[in-house]
Amino acid sequence: MVKLNVNSKSHDCDISNDMPLLWALRDILNLTGTKYGCGVAQCGACVVHLDGEAVRSCVTKVSRAEGKKITTIEGLSLNNDHPLQKAWQEIDVPQCGYCHSGQIMSAAVLLRENKNPTDEDIDNAMAGNICRCGTYPRVRKAIHIAADMQRKAENKS
């Protein structure tokens, strides 16, 4: 039995320790927002937060996630209103959309650690996320928009 805390909910999963977190999320907990793209940490479609870090769930065994806080795209915000989600919607970043759970989860770590990222910071953070549709220009633009939103919200409070 593996105990997983996902999006602030605790789950007891009858799975083996070495199942990658990706498949536990998708096939056991039915949280399908986290995607399978390559299985070997090459594409970034499977990025989730493990105690706040953007781990690739396709190579992260559930044993590593036990006792840690797992956040998936479904749990990034309550109302689809994280600044990144709002920025993504504002300029229609996704095309097919398959890679964007991972794109957003990666970008969220960038914005937490760097409130005012430059293009170079964005490249450094997002280099691991492949988009076959080629939405990169909009990914970059939306991260800048989200950073603006985040800074404005913080200045208000």
């Binding site: 949280l31 927002g33 479904e74 990144l84 993504w88």
Partner: peptide, 10 residues
């Protein structure tokens, strides 16, 4: 379809 693609619901 964009909002569906920013929260994993699509």
């Amino acid at each position: 379809d964009t909002p569906l693609k920013t929260n994993g619901k699509a």
